[in-house]
């Protein structure tokens, strides 16, 4: 079986580097070109040192892109929209890791991103990039728009509860604890080590952009509001989303187990983590570092009807590159875990 030729556009960022790490070990992939304007002509391992001795590719310029089977786009916000026609002329399939084509609805895009979408007619061409929600559509799709990291963690935690209709729609409060790699590799005052180290920084108490995707995927036709906040902590990779869901009926722990088993029992990348003893009783971000897992746990407060759901991912893996490769595997009919087998490290 001949290999799939793949190019990565904008590969000098953290997500682009993680994508390369995975694709270099994918048995059915041949990496053709890797672009970065800033690092044009440099060895890829200069920017991604974990690829030393593994990859001798050099960055080329976006202007020199040639035809290939699949293009992964890891461009800054707005760039994919601008150059989409060129990309679709170069490749049969496109997986975009940016936010450009995540939303189905142009109005919602304008509301959340503050400026109108430049190619609204293409929005419906892109399948939203969470395989656990859109596996069959993805298997027939030409374009996939990878989901945001905080959105992925929150949506996967809440999806079964909202689909079954057991949650009070507009009462859920979710707070994500996140690491510094979510900000990408652009340096700033705020990410300067003596300032960033040891922070418990409430950087987005309200109005986080990923909210748009959450409300889109959890609405099932009726508008829904998720009360979302984000706090960055002393971590590089990792998201822990803690969601407070107020149930609209009396349920027991066993009912919750049944619902999660119904939706995720056969999912290769979702583990239900809820244990009575041991050092890791609920999902723990460091345990999924480098893996494509989303661990989900919960605890039910029967008196108040509050269900606390915890979900942990690696924002660069299930929240970006890993999920993009999972979508790639589905689009090509490969085993979904191909190149995504790394089990994570302990202790770490």
């Amino acid at each position: 079986m001949s290999k799939i030729s793949v190019s990565v556009v904008g590969a000098s960022g953290f997500a682009g580097g993680e994508l390369l790490r995975l694709l270099l070990f994918h048995p059915h992939v041949e990496i053709k070109q890797v672009t970065s304007e800033r690092h044009y002509g440099k060895f890829v391992h200069k920017v991604h040192p974990n690829l030393r001795k593994i990859c001798n590719l050099k960055f080329t310029g976006i202007g020199e892109l040639e035809e290939c089977d699949v293009l992964f786009l890891c461009l800054p916000h707005g760039e994919a929209q601008k150059q989409i026609d060129r990309f679709t002329s170069l490749a049969q399939r496109i997986i975009d890791l940016s936010g450009d084509f995540r939303l189905n609805d142009a109005q919602s895009y304008k509301r959340w991103y503050g400026h109108p979408h430049t190619r609204p007619e293409l929005l419906s061409e892109f399948v939203y990039g969470i395989p656990e929600l859109y596996r069959s559509k993805m298997s027939r799709a030409r374009f996939v728009s990878s989901a945001g990291c905080n959105a992925t963690a929150t949506i996967l935690a809440l999806y079964p509860l909202y689909k079954e209709g057991i949650a009070q729609r507009n009462s859920t409060v979710t707070e994500v604890k996140v690491g510094s790699s979510e900000g990408g590799n652009k340096v700033s005052e705020a990410s300067h080590h003596p300032i960033r180290h040891g922070c418990v920084r409430s950087f987005k108490p309200t109005g986080h952009r990923h909210l748009a995707e959450m409300e889109q995927e959890l609405s099932f036709g009726e508008s829904v509001t998720i009360h979302f906040s984000a706090t960055s902590i002393e971590m590089v990779r990792g998201v822990l989303a803690t969601s407070h869901v107020f149930l609209n009926r009396d349920l027991q722990e066993k009912d919750i187990w049944k619902i999660y088993r119904k939706y995720y029992g056969n999912e290769p990348f979702i583990r239900i983590v809820k244990e009575r003893d041991g050092n890791y009783r609920y999902p723990e971000p460091k345990l999924v570092t480098g893996t494509n897992y989303c661990d989900i746990g919960f605890e039910l407060d029967a008196q108040t009807g509050r269900l606390v759901v915890m979900s942990a991912i690696d924002n660069l893996m299930k929240g970006a590159a890993g999920q993009a490769v999972q979508a790639f595997n589905i689009m090509h009919g490969f085993a979904e875990t191909t190149a995504l087998e790394f089990p994570g490290l302990h202790p770490i």
Binding site: E253, K254, W257, K258, R261, K274, R276, D277, G278
Partner: peptide
Amino acid sequence: PVCDAVFEVAENVELNELLTCPDCGSE
């Protein structure tokens, strides 16, 4: 009884024997 998982148990299991649920880990 805790998580409603159905799992296999050896035929010669004894009274008062302790088992671990493979899903939720309850004793």
